[in-house]
Amino acid sequence: MGAAGGCLCGGVRYEIGGDLTPPVACHCAQCARTSGHFAAMTCCKSEDLTLLASETLVWFRSSPAVARGFCGRCGGNLFWREDPGIQTYVTAGTLDRPTGLKLAGHIHVGSKSDYYEVADGLPQKQEW
């Protein structure tokens, strides 16, 4: 229970006071464009997420109901939140180590890029 993390430059630091879900690797085109590959995301209740430093946090509305949080200085991909924002998805790579988390599976594998295969034996969903 609980975790902390942040971006590469330290402009954004956060703590999570509650439980995190097992991360899921999302292979959709939007995650690929924001991360450079696929994005491994864990999830928490938004009320459990506390920003300790947010001077460089920028929110980008990637679709009418979704906002993505990133660092405006180093470009770190940090958060994904769908309106009304009850849950916040956190990129697992921004968590301080050790995380204690284990990847649960893959989503949107039907739209993944062609330069890699998903062959780790975990469950795969073509879409969400």
Rank of each mutant, 00 (worst) to 15 (best):
T34E: 04
K45R: 14
L51H: 05
E127P: 04
A104L: 11
D19Q: 14
G5K: 10
S63D: 05
V24F: 07
R33P: 04
A65H: 06
G5I: 00
A29P: 02
V109F: 15
I86C: 02
V66W: 07
S113G: 13
A67W: 14
R61V: 11
R33W: 11
Q87E: 10
D96E: 14
T34Q: 12
L49C: 10
W59G: 02
G11H: 03
L8C: 04
C71E: 07
G18C: 08
E127V: 07
E127D: 12
R13W: 04
A92Q: 09
L78F: 04
H106K: 12
I16W: 05
P98W: 01
L101R: 15
S35K: 06
L101E: 12
F79E: 01
I86G: 06
Y89L: 14
T34D: 01
T21C: 06
Q126H: 10
E55P: 05
V12S: 08
E15I: 07
K45Y: 00
D120M: 11
K45F: 00
C71F: 08
Y115V: 14
I16C: 12
Q87C: 05
T91R: 13
R73A: 14
M41E: 00
V12C: 06
F70V: 06
A29G: 05
S111A: 13
H108Y: 15
V109I: 09
S63P: 10
L52I: 15
M41S: 02
R97S: 09
C44T: 07
Q87W: 01
Q124W: 11
C28K: 08
S54I: 02
C26K: 07
M1W: 10
T94S: 15
Y89R: 10
E55R: 13
A104M: 03
Q126Y: 11
F60N: 00
G75E: 05
A92S: 12
P123T: 14
K102E: 08
G11R: 03
G72Y: 00
L20M: 09
R61A: 14
S46G: 12
I16L: 13
R33Y: 04
C28A: 05
D19M: 06
E55S: 11
A119P: 03
I107N: 10
G121W: 14
D120R: 13
D96N: 14
A40K: 08
T42P: 10
L103W: 15
T42G: 04
T88R: 09
E47D: 07
S111V: 06
S63W: 03
L52M: 06
C43P: 03
G6E: 08
G2P: 05
G17M: 05
T34C: 01
V12H: 10
C28P: 12
V24T: 09
G6V: 05
A4R: 15
V58R: 15
A3D: 03
T21I: 07
G105W: 09
Q87R: 13
G17K: 14
R97G: 02
A4I: 04
S113M: 13
E15W: 02
C74H: 02
L78I: 06
L78H: 03
G110R: 10
V90F: 09
L49A: 00
H27W: 11
L57D: 03
A119Q: 13
L51G: 02
G17T: 04
F38E: 00
G69T: 08
A25I: 07
Q124S: 10
R97Q: 15
G76K: 10
E82G: 09
D96I: 01
T91Y: 01
A92H: 09
W80L: 05
T56A: 03
E117Y: 01
